[in-house]
């Protein structure tokens, strides 16, 4: 599953970048991230509750940020395993100045395995898209402005 989307923010790239690599903000933006513990430079153990509405699974996993090139790009890795199987995602994020604010390009790749792949295949892509949109919507909230999903 691959997704590519752009989001517009009113903040300059530097603010956006700083927020995105800040674990406290990351945790608030990753939908269903209940806990994050630092395990090293830019890497964390995480408890994730992922899904939609009543159909949610609990996962224990890792969140990691690498390939940091402030203020324009970095890669975010999230992986988890739990009763419903496993999830793994990688998002390459590029931040470009646009007018007063900035535009963010997110190219992500996700994989799921086990039960969720077996029974949820029709919804996985839509859930992934929703989670990504949700991530940036929450980021917008954290920055006290609103992200506008582009195309």
């Amino acid at each position: 599953m691959k997704l590519s989307a752009t989001y517009a923010f009113q903040d300059p790239g530097e603010t956006l970048f700083a927020a995105l690599v800040d674990p406290a903000i990351l945790q608030k933006c990753i939908d269903g991230c209940e806990k994050m513990e630092k395990t090293g430079e830019d890497s964390y153990n995480a408890h994730l509750k992922i899904g939609v509405a009543g159909i949610k699974g609990s996962y224990v996993g890792k969140v990691r940020v690498d390939e940091k090139k402030p203020p324009e790009s970095f890669t975010l890795h999230v992986e988890g395993k739990g009763g419903p199987g496993w999830v793994k995602g990688k998002a390459k994020i590029q931040i470009l100045p646009k007018g007063e604010g900035s535009e963010l390009l997110c190219e992500s790749e996700g994989q799921v395995g086990g039960l969720i792949a077996q029974v949820g295949s029709r919804l996985v892509e839509a859930v992934g898209k929703k989670m990504q949109d949700e991530f940036f919507r929450k980021l917008g909230q954290q920055l006290r402005n609103t992200s506008v999903p582009g195309k």
Partner: peptide
Amino acid sequence: AKVLAGGHSLIPAMKLRLS
């Protein structure tokens, strides 16, 4: 809590432990 009506979505989801 979860409301059970006819159970044709909730019960399968529970049996799969997705809910």
